[in-house]
């Protein structure tokens, strides 16, 4: 039984390594420090721009920061929050980011 559980855990990771080839996120597939995402979040709630402290409290991520993983991980947190905990207090979010120092890109929530 123990061997089956251990093997299942390893198999799960094999599946996630393969799955990562088809999606922008990198969960449970061992891609540590493989991407440098520098980002800035501009968050507006009820027409008011949130401060850095408020952004951190909302998403548990700094307003301006570097994530050592895919930008999709930051987007997942913002989107996940807005679709669940923030549903009654919706925000408009503009995320400006650079991947590995390349040209700036923009992602918005709600998505247009």
């Amino acid at each position: 039984m123990k061997t089956i559980v251990a093997a299942a855990l390893l198999l799960f990771q094999v599946v996630m390594i393969v799955y990562a080839r088809f999606v922008p996120s990198r969960y449970f597939c061992w891609a540590p420090f493989d991407i440098q995402t520098e980002y800035k979040l501009q968050v507006e709630v009820d027409g008011r721009t949130l401060s850095g402290k408020e952004v951190r409290a909302r998403y548990r991520r700094p307003q301006n920061g570097t994530d050592n993983r895919s930008p999709q991980h930051v987007m997942d947190i913002v989107q996940g929050y807005e679709e669940s905990y923030g549903r009654n207090n919706p925000a408009r979010v503009v995320m400006r980011y650079r991947v590995n120092g390349k040209d700036e890109q923009v992602w918005r929530w709600p998505q247009q």
Binding site: L10, Q13, V14, I17, R26, C29, A31, P32
Partner: peptide, 13 residues
């Protein structure tokens, strides 16, 4: 698995 995942992800990036 850790090394294979890390190495292959870098190789394909």
């Amino acid at each position: 698995l850790v090394y294979f995942g890390a190495g292959s992800n870098k190789l394909l990036d």
